[in-house]
């Protein structure tokens, strides 16, 4: 139990630091803002109680918000994906195959993980970008930002599974 706790605290700190000190500083273009800290919510064990998932989503979202002066935006988007996570997992998994309790890349099939991260990232970015701009006047340019940033985020998340979170 304590080992798990320490492990997730370390992942939390590492992800927040990577996000605010590296990815937020990249400033490639307005269309490419990768947000990979939601990996924390994605990697919580499937057996974790739902209130833990929701609360940790809120916490990591709020932490990133404080660093990027966008109070509440990341928290709202992350709480949302933390809530829909069980439904996403249920809908993208076959009934026969057993899903590992730890939803990482190595523990599951590559296609499953890719699908899982793509759906989670898309929902998160969709809410984040539309809530940030808070208007539908530039609907399609915001949608383009959502799609392009999602592609980059999924790429970085999958890459990180090969590099850091290999277990």
């Amino acid at each position: 139990m304590i080992r798990w706790l320490i492990k997730y605290v370390v992942i939390f700190v590492v992800l927040v630091l990577i996000q605010v000190l590296f990815l937020n500083q990249m400033q490639i273009s307005g269309y490419l803002n990768p947000y990979i800290y939601i990996l924390f919510v994605m990697l919580l064990p499937l057996s974790a109680p739902r209130y833990i998932v929701l609360l940790s989503g809120f916490l990591i979202g709020l932490t990133v918000d404080i660093f990027s002066n966008s109070l509440g935006l990341h928290a709202a988007a992350t709480v949302f994906i933390a809530y829909i996570r069980p439904f996403i997992i249920r809908s993208i998994s076959d009934r026969e195959e057993e899903i590992n309790d730890y939803p990482g890349l190595k523990q599951n099939k590559f296609s499953w993980f890719l699908y899982y991260s793509a759906v989670m990232v898309f929902f998160h970015h969709f809410i984040l970008f539309y809530l940030e701009i808070f208007s539908f006047t530039q609907f399609f340019s915001t949608l383009l930002r959502v799609v392009l940033s999602s592609l980059l985020s999924v790429f970085v998340i999958v890459l990180s599974q090969f590099l850091i979170f290999r277990e």
């Binding site: 739902r50 209130y51 929701l54 109070l71 509440g72 935006l73 709202a76 709480v79 809530y83």
Partner: peptide, 26 residues
């Protein structure tokens, strides 16, 4: 309870967003 908690947290986050928009408050 998960849904209730979700509504609470989401509400709190959105309240922060809309209060922060008038950027002097927080």
């Amino acid at each position: 309870y998960a849904f209730v908690l979700f509504l609470l947290l989401e509400g709190a986050a959105l309240a922060l967003v809309f209060n922060h928009n008038s950027y002097q408050k927080s």
